[in-house]
């Protein structure tokens, strides 16, 4: 299979800060690929280079075989980009925004209507509403519609669902799945780990470096070892006490429970005894199942 995106040794510096540090990555055509990393990891810089808005200091990248530096004009017609910040015109209406972006690319809204039809159906409820007055979920759908208007081969989405509620997020990801079936390659970054699990492959990025690339399933293999749940009605004292235990390597909040990462010598029964001595009478500890969040926290910690 051909690669839609090829990145080789990409480096970008801002003064002393190395935003991207020899990043290499291949994304095959027609895949849904996730870019996962903390704030300041370099995700947005990578998007800005791939969309030809920034030039790299070292290394090279191609999108659909087009070089991000040499072929930037042609490349721009092949991609659809949703930046992190809402980038449509808030004082233009839904229809005006769609037509504006269509005319920029020299196409008709009708030309590629099949692609945006599912989005358009939902937007049709209020064609004359100004984009600035739409709800968060609707803004994202309009932005996706505008990014698709010229039938791009590659979609580059930088945290498209931040601040969007769970139902709208799920709809948004449904749309991404449909677009992928139509052969569009999608690179998406997210801070929601449930979304990371919906990607075919993900790259974990931290401090400008790629830490790992694989399917979500393979990445979390082996995480269950030495991973426990802990709970009590007094969660904060529980957290503080667990962190003082000798065989506990890390302890962090995890929804209704705490997750405890231990070394091989950890004995749950001994730990419960110690917690009871500290006055946490109702403390419980039992094995936990690791997921992408655990992996992310582990990598962020190992990486300092």
């Amino acid at each position: 299979m051909k690669n839609a995106i090829d990145i080789q040794g990409l480096t970008k510096r801002y003064g002393k800060l190395v935003a991207l540090d020899h990043v290499s990555l291949s994304i095959s055509e027609g895949s849904l690929f996730g870019l996962i990393g903390p704030d300041g990891a370099g995700k947005t810089t990578l998007y800005q280079i791939l969309t030809t808005l920034l030039s790299p200091d070292e290394g090279s990248a191609t999108v659909m075989g087009l070089d991000v530096v040499k072929d930037y004009r042609k490349l721009r017609t092949e991609i659809g980009y949703m930046p992190e910040k809402f980038s449509l015109y808030p004082d233009l209406t839904v229809d005006e925004n769609l037509h504006f972006f269509a005319s920029l690319f020299g196409v008709n809204v009708k030309d590629n209507f099949d692609l945006i039809a599912p989005i358009f159906d939902q937007l049709q409820k209020f064609p004359n509403r100004r984009a600035g007055a739409l709800s968060g979920g609707m803004k994202q759908k309009l932005a996706l519609g505008c990014a698709l208007i010229h039938r791009p081969k590659v979609l580059l989405l930088d945290e498209p669902t931040t601040g969007v509620d769970a139902v709208s997020r799920s709809e948004f990801w449904g749309m991404l799945a449909t677009l992928r079936e139509k052969g569009i390659t999608i690179l998406v970054s997210t801070s929601y780990m449930d979304e990371a699990e919906r990607c075919e492959r993900i790259a974990l990025i931290n401090k400008g470096r790629i830490l790992d690339v694989d399917t979500p399933g393979r990445l979390i293999e082996g995480l269950d070892k030495n991973l426990y749940n802990a709970s009590s009605k007094d969660m904060y004292p529980l957290l503080e006490t667990l962190r003082t235990l000798p065989d506990v390597k890390d302890c962090y909040t995890f929804g209704a429970t705490l997750h405890v990462v231990t070394n091989d010598d950890f004995n749950p029964d001994d730990a419960i005894c110690k917690l009871r001595q500290e006055g946490l009478e109702d403390a419980r500890i039992w094995p936990a199942k690791g997921n992408i969040e655990d992996l992310f926290i582990k990598l962020a910690k190992d990486d300092g």
Binding site: P38, A41, E84, T162, G163, S191, Y236, T253, A300, K301
Partner: peptide, 20 residues
Amino acid sequence: GGVDPSTRRKFWEMIYRASS
């Protein structure tokens, strides 16, 4: 909003502490 899992957790620890 828009904050990664490690940072979100550190924030919730602050909330737990305030609540305790």
